[in-house]
Computed example of a mutant assay.
Amino acid sequence: MRAAATCAALVLGAIAVVAGVIPRLAGATPYTVLTSSMRPQLPPGSLVVVRPTDPRDLGVGDVVTYQVRSGDPTVVTHRIVGMKVGVGGEPIFITQGDANPAPDAEPVQAVQIRGRLWYAVPYVGRLNLLLGLDRTLVLRLIALALAAAACREFVLAARERRRAVPAGEAAGELHHV
């Protein structure tokens, strides 16, 4: 039972680090893939972490997350399959989901780009969807569970040490050889 609890705590800790800690430290943003448009690389439920990037550094083949409309919080993660140059010299991107037969209907303006894919973890994003909770709350609950597991381990270890010490030594007696 103790090994299972330790294993579960380690898995939860790894998920918390991958889903929340690393992105925050790196200035990245985690998102959950909701559709199958990027199969097989990014199946639904994948956690994708994107880092902000200068749109001029993007190219064909890069996977990006972008706002559907500038200012709208709805985002899509697709691959850049073509590029154009806008009137002001800014890049305009043609995107397409890997599983989609044709490019997206609307080109993506540079201002809509939230970032380039940094890493993805299949199915980890499902935790947010299954729980129906805010990501911050989920991470706090994971941190609380890890802290509780650590406290439990410390208490169990202290009890084992007390049991292992002979009665005379526990009272402060020293034995010289």
Score class of each variant (00 low, 15 high):
Arg114Thr: 06
Leu127Phe: 15
Arg161Trp: 08
Gly97Phe: 02
Arg79Ala: 07
Val165Phe: 02
Ala145His: 08
Pro44Ile: 08
Phe93Leu: 05
Ala8Ser: 07
Leu139Asn: 09
Ala105Trp: 03
Cys151Trp: 15
Pro91Trp: 04
Gln96Val: 04
Ser37Tyr: 09
Val81Ile: 05
Gly115Pro: 14
Arg2Trp: 12
Pro91Leu: 09
Thr136Lys: 13
Met83Ser: 10
Ser46His: 02
His176Trp: 09
Gly168Gln: 13
Ala99Asp: 06
Ile22Trp: 10
Glu106Thr: 14
Gly97Tyr: 05
Pro107Asn: 12
Leu131Val: 07
Cys151Arg: 13
Ala99Pro: 01
Val75Asn: 08
Leu25Pro: 03
Pro122Leu: 11
Phe93Lys: 06
Val76Ala: 00
Ala5Met: 13
Gly71Lys: 03
Thr65Phe: 00
Val87Leu: 06
Val124Phe: 15
Val138Tyr: 06
Leu141Cys: 13
Pro55His: 01
Thr74Phe: 12
Ala4Arg: 14
Val124Arg: 07
Gly59Tyr: 00
Glu173His: 06
Arg79His: 06
Val11Ile: 15
Pro52Lys: 04
Ala28Cys: 08
Leu25Met: 12
Tyr31Ser: 02
Arg161Gln: 10
Asp134His: 14
Leu174Ser: 04
Cys151Met: 15
Gly172Val: 03
Thr65Val: 12
Ala120Ser: 15
Arg163Met: 10
Thr32Ala: 10
Val50Ile: 10
Val75Ala: 07
Tyr119Asp: 04
Val177Arg: 14
Arg135Val: 14
Ala16Tyr: 07
Leu34Asp: 08
Pro122Val: 08
Ala157Asn: 06
Pro55Cys: 02
Arg24Gly: 03
Arg51Val: 07
Asp104Glu: 06
Gly13Leu: 07
Ala102Lys: 15
Leu141Thr: 02
Leu133Met: 14
Pro44Trp: 03
His78Gln: 07
Gln112Cys: 11
Ala150Asn: 05
Asp57Lys: 13
Gly45Tyr: 07
Met1Gly: 13
Ala147Phe: 13
Ala164Asn: 08
Ala110Cys: 10
Arg51Phe: 03
Pro30Lys: 05
Gly27Phe: 03
Trp118Glu: 07
Val63Tyr: 02
Ser46Pro: 00
Gly168Asp: 14
Lys84Trp: 10
Val49Arg: 02
Ala3Arg: 14
Ala143Glu: 12
Val63Pro: 00
Ala110Gly: 10
Ser37Ile: 06
Asp57Leu: 12
Ile15Pro: 00
Leu130Ala: 13
Val85Leu: 05
Pro166Val: 05
Met1Thr: 11
